Computed example of a mutant assay.
Amino acid sequence: MSGTIITWFLLAFASIMTHAIEVNVTGEWRPELGWEVTCSWQTLSNDSLQSVRLYNNGQQFMIYRLEKHGSKRSEVFQTPQLVMHIDCATTKDKGQEGRCVMLLEPFQPSLNDFVYTCEVSGERPMFRIEKKDYLVKILVPPSNATLTSQYQDGSSPTRVMLNCSSSGLPAPTLKWTVNKDKLEADFTGRVWNATSKLWNVWSYLSYTRDTNSKVLCSPEVNSNNEVIKGIPAEFNSAPRYIG
Rank of each mutant, 00 (worst) to 15 (best):
T26Y: 10
C164H: 00
S143Q: 14
P31D: 14
N212P: 02
V83G: 04
I21Y: 04
Q78D: 00
E75Q: 14
F235V: 05
R73W: 04
D210Q: 02
A171P: 07
L103M: 14
L82T: 09
L169Y: 07
G27C: 12
P232K: 11
I5Y: 15
L183T: 03
L33D: 12
T91I: 10
K197D: 09
G3H: 08
S51F: 04
L10A: 13
E220H: 07
L49P: 00
P125H: 05
Q108A: 01
P142W: 06
G243T: 09
V101I: 13
T173W: 04
S143K: 14
T188H: 03
T195K: 11
D93Y: 11
L44K: 09
P125W: 09
C118I: 07
R209P: 00
F127L: 15
S155A: 04
T211V: 06
S143Y: 02
C88Y: 14
M126S: 09
S165N: 12
A145S: 12
H19N: 12
Y241H: 05
R73E: 14
N57A: 08
A194L: 07
K137M: 11
I138R: 12
G3S: 12
L198K: 04
S156K: 14
V25E: 00
E22R: 05
K131D: 01
T91C: 03
V221F: 10
T90P: 03
L10F: 00
V136N: 08
E105I: 08
N112S: 08
N144F: 04
T117H: 00
I6S: 06
V191F: 02
Q50M: 15
P219F: 15
W41D: 00
W41S: 04
Q78V: 05
Q81H: 09
E226W: 03
S218I: 05
S2H: 11
L135I: 10
D87T: 15
T195M: 10
